Computed example of a mutant assay.
Amino acid sequence: MVSLSAVQSSNSLIPSTLPRGLVAVFVGGTSGIGESTLKKFAKLSITPRIYIIGRSQEAGERIEAECRLLNPEGVYIFIQADVSLIRVVDELCEEIKAKETHLNILFLSAGLPILDRRETPEHLHLLASLNYYSRLRFITNLLPLLQRASALRRVVTVAGGGLEGPLDPSDFPALHVPLRAIRGHLTTLITLGLEAVATKAPEVSFVHDYPGTVKTPLMSRTEGFLGVFLRALVYLLGRWMCVPLEESGDRHLYLATSARYPPRKGESSRDFAVPLGSGVEVARGTTGEAASGVYSVGWDCEGPSPAAEKLLAGLREAGMVDEIWRHTEKEFKRITE
Rank of each mutant, 00 (worst) to 15 (best):
S3R: 13
S3G: 12
S9V: 10
N11W: 03
S12D: 09
L13K: 14
S16C: 07
S16W: 08
P19R: 13
R20F: 10
R20Y: 12
F26A: 08
T30K: 08
G32S: 02
S36H: 02
K39I: 05
S45V: 06
S45E: 05
I46A: 07
Y51N: 05
I52V: 08
R55F: 07
R62G: 03
I77A: 04
A81G: 12
S84C: 07
I86R: 03
L92G: 12
E94R: 15
A98N: 12
A98Q: 11
K99V: 11
H102K: 14
L103K: 13
N104Q: 10
F107R: 02
G111P: 07
L112M: 06
P113T: 04
D116F: 04
E119F: 13
E119N: 10
E122Q: 00
H123V: 09
L126F: 13
L127P: 06
L127C: 11
S129R: 04
L130P: 05
N131C: 10
N131L: 12
N131F: 09
R135W: 00
L136M: 14
I139C: 00
L142G: 02
R148G: 06
L152K: 04
R153Q: 03
V155M: 01
V155L: 06
V155T: 09
V158P: 07
E164W: 06
D168P: 03
D168G: 01
S170E: 09
F172D: 00
P173T: 06
P178R: 08
A181M: 15
I182Y: 08
I182M: 08
G184M: 03
L186F: 02
T191Q: 04
L192E: 03
G193S: 12
E195S: 10
E195W: 07
P202G: 02
E203W: 06
V204Q: 01
S205P: 00
D209G: 09
P211I: 04
T213N: 04
P217A: 05
L218Q: 13
L218W: 14
S220Y: 14
T222V: 08
F225Q: 11
L226E: 06
G227F: 06
V228F: 15
F229M: 15
Y235F: 10
G238Q: 04
W240Y: 11
M241Q: 04
C242D: 01
C242N: 11
V243T: 09
V243L: 03
P244T: 05
P244R: 07
S248F: 01
S248Y: 03
H252I: 00
L253A: 00
L253Q: 00
Y254V: 01
Y254K: 01
T257L: 00
A259S: 08
P263V: 01
D271N: 13
F272V: 07
A273V: 08
V274H: 02
G279N: 14
V280T: 14
V282T: 15
A283Y: 12
R284C: 09
R284A: 10
T287P: 03
S292Y: 10
G293S: 06
V294Q: 06
V297K: 07
W299T: 11
E302V: 14
G303N: 14
P306W: 12
E309T: 14
L312V: 15
L312Q: 14
R316C: 02
A318C: 03
E323H: 13
I324H: 02
R326H: 07
E331T: 15
E331L: 11
